[in-house]
C-alpha cells in the first residue's frame, strides 16, 4: 500500500503482478479487496473475471469478464481499504480518520499508541502518516481480532510500520516500555477514562491524545479525568455531507405571462407540441445533498499533555 522504498515510489504506476492486492471497483459503493492469484477467478454479477487476464495491466485498468461486463482494478490506498475491509467491529471512517491524524499532529517519524485495534481502519491511516520512520503500536484485548488485524497489515504491506499486541489497556494500561516516548495516543475504548492516566504517562511533553466515544456520557467522564494532567481539551463532531450531481433539462418560461393560465409546471412533452409558453428545455448540471447520510459516528475529544516546568 505504501512505497517504503524510495526507489519504488510511484509504485502504482507499475503493472499488476501475481500476489498483488488490488481493489476491484464495481461502483463507488461496491468495491472488494482481491489478492491476485494466477489460476483463480473473480465471480460477480458481471460474470467471471480471470486473474490471469489482469497480470501485466497497469493499476487503474478496466478489465472484462467472460460476459463482457467490466470492473476497474485500483491500487489500494488507506481510503479504499476503509471501504473494503472486513468489519470485525464498528470502524472509523474518512472524516474522523483525517481529522484525528491532523489534530494529533502525526507526521513521519512519530511513535503512536492506539487501543483498541478493532478492524484496523484508523491504524492503516496512522501507519501512512508515521511512515517511513515512525511506528504504530496498537493494542486490543481480543486475541482473535488482534490476529486478524495482524493478517490484514501483512496483506496491505504495513507490518513493518504497525505492531499489534494483545493487551487490556483499560485494565493494565500501556506497557511501561513506552513511558515518555509517545508523540500521540488514540483511545477507542468503552471506558476511556480508565486508560487516561496511563496515556499521560506514555506521552512526551506537549504530546497529543484523542479519545473517540459514541456517547456523550463517555466524553463527560473522560474530560473530567483529562483535566488532571491535560490541557487544551476540546471535543468535536465531524461529519461529511455527500452531494449528487446530475444533468437534467429544466423547462424555462418565456416570460411575459401573455394570457397563459399559469398552470405550471407543465410536462415537457406537452409543451413541445405547440404550446407557446415554454421554450426548449435548457440542460444544466445540478447538485444536491444525498438524501441519507451518516448522522453520528462519535465524539472526538482531543487533549494535550500539560507541560510542567
Amino acid at each position: 500500500m505504501l512505497a517504503s522504498d524510495p526507489a519504488k515510489k510511484n509504485s502504482f504506476n507499475r503493472s499488476i503482478n501475481n500476489g498483488d492486492l488490488v481493489i476491484v471497483y464495481e461502483r463507488h459503493d461496491n468495491m472488494k479487496a482481491v489478492t491476485v492469484s494466477e489460476g483463480t477467478v473473480l465471480q460477480n454479477r458481471f460474470g467471471i473475471f480471470k486473474h490471469s487476464d489482469w497480470l501485466g495491466k497497469p493499476f487503474g485498468s478496466k478489465v472484462f469478464s467472460n460476459k463482457g461486463g467490466y470492473v476497474y482494478l485500483l491500487y489500494p490506498t488507506p481510503e479504499l481499504w476503509t471501504l473494503v475491509l472486513s468489519h470485525r467491529t464498528q470502524i472509523l471512517y474518512i472524516a474522523d480518520i483525517s481529522f484525528v491524524v491532523m489534530y494529533l499532529e502525526i507526521v513521519p517519524g512519530c511513535l503512536v499508541l492506539e487501543s483498541g485495534t478493532g478492524s484496523g481502519s484508523l491504524t492503516t491511516s496512522l501507519a501512512r502518516a508515521v511512515a517511513p520512520t515512525g511506528h504504530v503500536y496498537t493494542f486490543d484485548f481480543h486475541e482473535q481480532r488482534a490476529g486478524s488485524a495482524r493478517d490484514d497489515f501483512e496483506r496491505t504491506g504495513l507490518s513493518n510500520l504497525v505492531t499489534v499486541r494483545v493487551r487490556d489497556i483499560q485494565g493494565e494500561g500501556f506497557p511501561d516500555e513506552f513511558t515518555g516516548l509517545a508523540d500521540a495516543v488514540f483511545l477507542d475504548l468503552p471506558q476511556p477514562w480508565l486508560a487516561v492516566p496511563s496515556a499521560a504517562k506514555m506521552l512526551k511533553e506537549d504530546g497529543t491524545l484523542c479519545s473517540f466515544s459514541p456517547c456523550i456520557e463517555q466524553v463527560q467522564r473522560s474530560c473530567e479525568v483529562l483535566r488532571t494532567s491535560f490541557t487544551d481539551i476540546r471535543t468535536f463532531e465531524v461529519l461529511l455531507r455527500a452531494y449528487e450531481v446530475r444533468e437534467d433539462k429544466l423547462e424555462s418560461i418565456e416570460g411575459n405571462g401573455d394570457g397563459s393560465n399559469g398552470s405550471l409546471p407543465c410536462k415537457r412533452r406537452q409543451c413541445s407540441d405547440g404550446g407557446n409558453v415554454m421554450s426548449s428545455p435548457i440542460s444544466s448540471v445540478m447538485a444536491r445533498p444525498c438524501i441519507e447520510a451518516r448522522g453520528h459516528t462519535g465524539y472526538l475529544t482531543f487533549a494535550r499533555l500539560r507541560c510542567l516546568i
Binding site: A95, F99, E237, V238, L240, R241, Y243, V245, A287, P289
Partner: peptide
C-alpha cells in the same frame, strides 16, 4: 463531492 461539517462541544 463532500462537504465537511465540524461542530465543537463545550463539555
Amino acid at each position: 463531492i463532500s462537504e465537511p461539517w465540524l461542530r465543537e462541544y463545550q463539555v
